[in-house]
Design a protein around this nucleic acid. Structure first.
Length: 475
RNA sequence: GCUCCCUUCGUCUAGAGGCCUAGGACGGAGCCCUCUCAAGGCUUAAACACCGGUUCGAAUCCGGUAGGGAGCGCCA
């Protein structure tokens, strides 16, 4: 029997971290066993489901490179099938019409709560359901009254429920549309799902679903309920911290490889390994190794992984993403050929591509002002000779390369009897406008001769103007 | 309230009765390297929720307590 897993989101919002992790585990399990991964859109709630949300989910999965083998199947396209199966249950005596009004049910519920009981349908229409004029009945599933239902969960182990705890759930609303616990069973059965891997908020639904399976005389799939993902503060995920769209991670400059690697280690591990390639994940992933307890998101670790993947990426593949990030912060990229070189220069000093873009503005556009602190410290009368000297040496270079620039910097330092830093730092401020940049030699190489010399001239002029206006500097 | 689930450093985790003086990773601290920022290297602090039991021996097994979570809809 080939393994078939499914990811079954309801399209009421974007794909967030929790959903992505569920999708990843489903995908991994299928891949690990050479099986198939099915995407199913659970859109029976027509009020809340939107096409935009479907697209957002598809986009998110594509960005994370989680390809499904079949689907997407839409539950709204299968209403005829659900009607048919509901009828089958009715005929076989496993379901019945219930004419209770919503008000009646609400009252029942309130009374039970008042008596400190678990709210549940008391089955008053189960044996004598009396049609009421003008009332369209719902269909309820006849849950077994006695005995136990055992869920052999692949991550939780054996979980036993008394059937007396379960009530007769509605499988079709009065307007004829089917409900969640029913459509899931029909779909998992029809789509021959072998392993249901989902969030553990569904654990309590599982015995009901198993009972429907038996009424349908179909074998239930194996179940694996994944622990929740919590926000960094250990509280439930919220939009403030993590329950954001996975696409927002792209916008913030994360690589999909980093997000996937982060997610796979949330609730799963393989010895002490932290970094996993796709192939390694597929090879090692097993549901047995999934943890039972919820895990909190650790943004620092995600950042660390992201930096790891930035460092080890091919600069050429990152170049377009950096270009995109620069565009997002309003920096025009006239020379896309420069992007890969900038990536190479910044690889080790950016945790996200957005950070990289912010730190790389000066490569692509003129800065308006020097960073005041950096200028105060480095663009001074004292540094003027060094700047003039290095400017002259650089102008003479016929090989504008990092090693050549480096030699020039060293020569200038030696000639003036200064440490390298005393020459390099003023140059850094002159060409980048700030006190932080990649090493001077590669920065100048990437910047190019023309821009480098122009910015040195600008700085020399700036110092002249500012020191002249400030006699104190001459003591 | 009822049912079900969970509990190892701040966080992610290793650990299936002796290999545990509890290992790794992120983050923290310190040192080294260094033209800035990083990256890198080395060092270091930091945890078995609690109480009882079983056992020669328990982070590991059992029971209870406490804390946290989920579910209980004509939502999914």
């Amino acid at each position: 029997m080939t393994v078939r897993t499914r990811f079954a989101p309801s399209p009421t919002g974007y794909l967030h971290i929790g959903g992505a992790r569920t999708a990843l585990f489903c995908w991994l399990y299928a891949r690990h066993h050479g099986g198939q991964f099915i995407l199913r859109i659970e859109d029976t709630d027509r009020e809340r489901s939107t096409q935009a949300a479907v697209q957002a989910i598809l986009d998110g999965m594509q960005w994370l490179d989680l390809k499904h083998d079949q689907g997407p199947f839409y539950q709204t396209h299968r209403f005829e099938r659900y009607r048919q199966v509901a009828q089958q249950l009715l005929t076989a005596g496993h379901a019945y019409h219930c004419y209770c009004s919503k008000e009646e049910l609400e009252q029942m519920r309130a009374e039970q709560l008042a008596r400190k009981q678990k709210p549940r349908y008391d089955g008053r229409c189960r044996n004598h359901s009396i049609p009421r004029a003008g009332v369209q009945p719902v269909i309820r599933f006849k849950n077994p009254l006695t005995g136990q239902t055992v869920v052999n969960d692949l991550v939780r182990g054996q979980v036993v429920y008394d059937n007396s705890e379960l009530d007769d759930l509605i499988i079709a609303r009065s307007d004829g549309t089917p409900t969640y616990n029913f459509t899931v069973v029909v779909d998992d059965m029809d789509m021959q799902i072998t392993h249901v891997i989902r969030g553990d908020d569904h654990l309590n639904n599982t015995p009901r679903q198993i009972n429907i399976f038996s009424a349908l005389r179909a074998p239930p799939p194996a179940y694996a309920h994944l622990p929740m993902i919590l926000g960094p503060d250990g509280a439930k995920l919220s939009k403030r911290h993590g329950a954001v769209s996975v696409m927002q991670y792209r916008e913030e400059g994360y690589l999909p490889e980093a997000v996937i690697n982060y997610l796979v280690r949330l609730g799963w591990s393989h010895d002490d390994q932290e970094i996993f390639s796709r192939d390694e994940m597929v090879k090692y992933f097993d549901i047995q190794d999934v943890n039972k307890s919820a895990s909190a998101i650790n943004p620092e670790k995600l950042l660390w992984l992201n930096q790891h993947y930035i460092k080890s990426a091919d600069p050429n593949t990152l170049a377009p993403e950096l270009g995109w990030q620069l565009g997002r912060i309003g920096v025009p990229v006239q020379d896309p050929a420069k992007l890969a070189a900038v990536v190479r220069a910044q690889l080790e000093r950016a945790k996200t591509l957005r950070e990289m873009a912010q730190a790389s503005r000066f490569f692509f556009e003129e800065f308006s002002d020097y960073d005041p602190k950096a200028a105060d410290k480095n663009l001074t009368a004292e540094s003027l000779p060094a700047l003039r000297d290095i400017r002259a040496r650089l102008a003479l270079l016929n090989d504008w390369s990092a090693p050549a620039v480096h030699s020039a910097l060293e020569a200038a330092a030696a000639a003036l009897g200064l440490k390298l830093g005393k020459v390099a730092q003023p140059v850094r401020v002159a060409v980048s406008g700030s006190g932080v940049s990649p090493p001077m030699d590669v920065t100048l190489e990437v910047l190019g001769r023309e821009l480098s010399l122009a910015r040195l001239d600008r700085a020399i002029g700036w110092i002249a103007a500012h020191t002249a206006a400030d006699p104190e500097l001459f003591g």
